[in-house]
Design a protein around this nucleic acid. Structure first.
Length: 423
RNA sequence: GCGGCUAUGGCGAAGUGGUUAACGCACCAGAUUGUGGCUCUGGCAUGCGUGGGUUCGAUUCCCACUAGUCGCCCCA
């Protein structure tokens, strides 16, 4: 009997995990600097939460959720995204009462969507995300976008494209929606099936259609930007001004439609335009949601956030040929020959470790030659060689694996000797 | 959910309807019984994703399944 990993999931093995840790650490450090605090919420929630927040006409809800009934008969769903949980927690823990407003949060963790896996798409994937609750200052929109860009930049990514758009407030959205329906309604028969279905349910999404992209009505379709009321337009202009002042380049794309229903005003996407990145281009998506908190049962509170996938970030790094500075080798390998020396090596390795030196030894009963080979494979900077005769004389041979030079060092000063050289 | 391609040792990869499944890398051992990275010698798949079928005989042909991969939809 043998087992296989479930479809669309992956094991992250040593050699890879270091990269994950490095990325997560980079993101955490930046969040610290921007003064965002980590929040940890459950990996599953009541299904109803996602129906409410993500929107029941979305693909996520309609065909991608991992939903099951628990033993108590409750409908439970593995979270497909992070915002709903954060907002739920914000409301449930009455964070709106906290005097430190806005509440600036970040999270990292696995998300689940039942999709057919392909390049950059998994059933379990890890998102790093940020949510700011309680501010409707366009400057916070810019800050959130800047933070996202900063994460990519500080990992070395260059080939990025930031696209922003505004969906406006409820009034603007409504006016635009009507204009879209009027625009397409007469000739909707010329469009694909999906678009026909979208006309009444979510006409905004027609603009996102890949098939009918070149239809003449697409070219002439009313742009949301022309339907923004004064307040919405001013808001969007402010966001753009702040981004410009921060030196962040962007493109405005009035066709940028995000997949979740809860967005208002600012939406944005960061894409990779590296060669050979394949069909997946979106690294990060986010936007403002001013009605979501109310929807979940809290007081009227504006919010904005983004989520990025670590898997896609890694793919982008690979596409740009960037290798992360993750430490691999060890400081010292202790090679022992002979029964007594082996026993002693257990103690020596322990002493080295206590002194902060990355140390290891042989546990395979290998011969000296093979121990040296193992040390080489582990990229050990030094090998401390101990035989019974050295042990009798209370010394140890330290070999510098770069130069091949070997020095006899008194056992009691081995730690000092190595620390001196490893600095 | 739909379509194309793929599935051989730890990894990469050749191959054939028929008695021993190339090769390369990695690994292990020896040359060198206390010293790595180079060299040489030897070792390393009772098995060709899983299950059926065709056949005297299948890893090779057919079907299904599973998985991977690419694309569509959509998204992170």
């Amino acid at each position: 009997m043998s087992f296989q990993i479930p479809r669309g999931t992956q094991d992250i093995l040593p050699g890879e995990t270091e990269k994950w840790q490095y990325i997560e650490q980079t993101a955490r450090d930046l969040c610290r600097r921007y003064n965002y605090k980590e929040i940890r919420t459950p990996i599953f929630e009541h299904t109803e939460l996602f129906l409410r927040s993500v929107g029941d006409t979305t693909d996520i809800v309609q065909k991608e959720m991992y939903t099951f009934e628990d033993r108590g008969g409750r409908s439970i769903t593995l979270r497909p995204e992070g915002t709903a949980s954060v907002v739920r927690s914000f409301v449930e823990n009455k964070m709106y009462g906290d005097p430190n407003q806005p509440i600036k949060l970040y999270y990292v963790g696995p998300m689940f969507r039942y999709e057919r896996p392909q390049a950059g798409r998994f059933r379990q994937f890890v998102q790093f995300g940020v949510e700011v609750l309680g501010s409707h200052d366009p400057a916070i929109d810019a800050e959130v976008i800047a933070l996202a860009m900063e994460i990519y930049r500080s990992l070395g990514l260059q080939k990025l494209k930031l696209v922003i758009n505004s969906l406006g407030d409820a009034e603007s959205r409504k006016a635009h929606r009507e204009a879209l329906i009027n625009h397409f309604k007469q000739r909707i028969g010329e469009f694909c099936e999906d678009c026909q279905a979208r006309l009444e349910k979510n006409p905004l999404r027609i603009l996102d259609c890949k098939k009918d992209r070149d239809h003449e009505l697409m070219m002439t379709a009313p742009s949301i930007l022309d339907y923004l009321n004064d307040e919405s337009r001013r808001y969007f202009e402010k966001v753009q001004m702040y981004l410009t002042n921060l030196g962040i380049e962007f493109e405005v794309d009035s066709r940028l439609v995000r997949g979740l229903d809860y967005y208002h005003h600012t939406t944005f996407e960061i894409m990779s335009n590296a060669e050979g990145f394949g069909a997946i281009t979106t690294l990060c998506g986010g936007g403002r949601y001013n009605r979501l908190v109310q929807e979940i049962g809290g007081p009227e509170t504006p919010g904005i956030g983004f989520a990025l996938s670590i898997e896609r970030l890694l793919a982008a790094l690979e596409a740009e040929n960037i290798s992360l500075p993750v430490g691999k080798g060890i400081d010292c390998y202790v090679a022992a020959l002979g029964e007594k020396a082996k026993d002693e090596s257990v103690i020596i390795v322990n002493q080295l470790r206590k002194a902060g030196i990355v140390a290891d030894k042989d546990y395979q009963d290998r011969k000296v030659k093979a121990q040296l080979k193992a040390a080489d494979r582990l990229q050990a900077k030094y090998v401390a060689i101990l035989g019974d005769d050295e042990l009798d004389r209370k010394v140890i041979n330290v070999k510098d694996m770069n130069t091949g030079e070997q020095t006899e060092v008194p056992l009691h000063s081995l730690v000092e000797y190595l620390k001196e050289r490893l600095r």
